[in-house]
Design a protein around this nucleic acid. Structure first.
Lengths: 141, 141
DNA sequence: CATAATCCGTAGCCATTGCTACATTTATAC
DNA sequence: GTATAAATGTAGCAATGGCTACGGATTATG
């Protein structure tokens, strides 16, 4: 059947989209633990309102997401208390931050101006496979 | 006030996230018009079920999104009929496809294997500013 | 220590993007 | 032409991530 063949061919192209959707699902978690790490570094502690300013969203959005990440054991939070990272969250934050830094440095070395490099690297970092990250590292050397 | 200063400094870093959120909002539209263009090219016509196979999502998800893009004047659809692109949709599709191709070619030239390049380029293409796209083009020459 | 300012939680709204289950329409086969 | 298969639509649920409005908790200020 030629029809079946065509359909299978179309279906075969769905892999990148499935992957991209699954990466989107972890974007928020990665951004948040990375932000918590940064804010603790810079401010000494990380509060809900710090994150709300950092991401430019309402504190309600932040506290809902923080609750979910708490349940996912990525960070630790108690009402009206600063937010801490769990071990798991800290490891993810370190990994994300490193990847983010590489992507940013890569874009700048490629010739992108700093402002655009900062914006684009934030979007791109979540869609970089280990293979692509390696290629970027090699380019940086 | 030192506190205000710190808060302003934090807020200043929110720009990339706002931009990334706004780019996410147009991702679906870009992916869909690009897919419609491809499917019409390859199959002669584009049906809801073609898109559902292409993206590996249910036909319900597709038809809802198609309805929205119809309202946004990006494509044209009638019940039980194939999906066509409007002028506006066609232009967006062409632009997205071009950008996608550049990102893909760029990753491959950078040394990424084809499978990963295809996956990553799908995620990355929506987060590439004109400035970064230019830098990629130059690298390709 | 009382009052004001700040911080944060809860209720409840909306849009988007997944889904299953079921109904309807269109196309195919006999 | 009727029965079956395939395609599409509709109803309704869940999770996620935006929001405003309101109220309670905590911290600072006088």
């Amino acid at each position: 059947m030629k029809k079946k063949r065509v359909q299978e061919k179309i279906k075969a192209r769905s892999v990148p989209f499935s992957q991209t959707r699954s990466r989107h699902a972890s974007e928020t978690a990665e951004d948040y633990v990375e932000a918590v790490l940064d804010l603790i570094d810079e401010k000494g502690e990380c509060r809900v309102l710090d994150l709300s300013r950092f991401f430019n969203v309402s504190h309600v959005t932040v506290s809902r997401i923080v609750k979910r990440l708490n349940d996912a054991d990525l960070l630790y939070t108690q009402p009206y208390k600063p937010i801490e990272l769990t071990d798991k969250g800290y490891k993810l934050a370190k990994k994300s931050k490193k990847r983010h830094e590489i992507v940013l440095a890569f874009l700048i070395k490629l010739g992108v101006d700093k402002a655009n490099a900062e914006i684009d690297s934030e979007g791109i970092e979540h869609h970089v496979s280990p293979s692509t990250l390696d290629a970027m590292k090699k380019f940086l050397k």
